[in-house]
């Protein structure tokens, strides 16, 4: 009997507590930089696309919401011919970001992407690609990789020695 009255009193005193509700559209919570929201494709410092179309994000995606087609330009640089993310399927797990070897695909702190038409949730490459470097400024995959592409031969990458002519090592 006493405990009933006590619990009613405690509930009653909650009248004078501060309310926890965040009045969302007017008042927004601060999102941290590592918040997993909308997915973007970033560019390297030279404004080239970072994505090399390796399909690792599509393979890592647990809900199969990423689809892309890799192709090569005249310099031998790989890039996605199309890159499509179906955000009505995406669960924002961030596995694609973890799988990406070139820091191209990144999740950013933005979640306000509601649409009236479901089809509008399918983002094409032009919707995904941003003119920025995202979380890893200064990183350029082709500048650090040993792969030869047009305009950059073997041995010309950062911290890379010129290739050794194996025949010159013969005794």
């Amino acid at each position: 009997m006493f405990s009933i009255i006590r619990s009613m009193w405690i509930t009653f005193m909650h009248m004078f507590h501060k309310r926890e509700t965040v009045q969302y559209p007017e008042q927004k919570n601060k999102l941290t930089t590592r918040w997993r929201g909308r997915i973007v494709l970033t560019r390297d410092p030279d404004m080239g696309e970072r994505c090399v179309g390796c399909y690792l994000c599509a393979a890592a995606c647990p809900v199969d919401c990423i689809s892309l087609q890799a192709t090569e330009d005249e310099h031998g640089r790989r890039y996605p011919e199309f890159f499509r993310i179906n955000f009505s399927r995406c669960i924002f797990c961030g596995y694609c970001e973890e799988a990406c070897p070139t820091y191209a695909i990144q999740l950013i702190p933005d979640f306000e992407m509601g649409e009236y038409d479901r089809q509008n949730l399918v983002y094409e490459k032009k919707d995904l690609l941003i003119d920025g470097q995202g979380k890893y400024p200064g990183y350029n995959y082709y500048k650090v990789a040993g792969l030869a592409i047009g305009g950059k031969d073997k041995g010309e990458a950062q911290n890379e020695d010129p290739p050794v002519d194996v025949r010159s090592l013969l005794p």
């Binding site: 509930t11 009653f12 909650h14 009248m15 507590h17 309310r19 009045q23």
Partner: peptide, 17 residues
């Protein structure tokens, strides 16, 4: 009206709006 009153009062006692 009571439906509204109840929802508001319950919210008040549960620190909501």
């Amino acid at each position: 009206g009571l439906i509204w009153l109840e929802r508001r009062l319950l919210a008040l006692w549960q620190d909501r709006y």
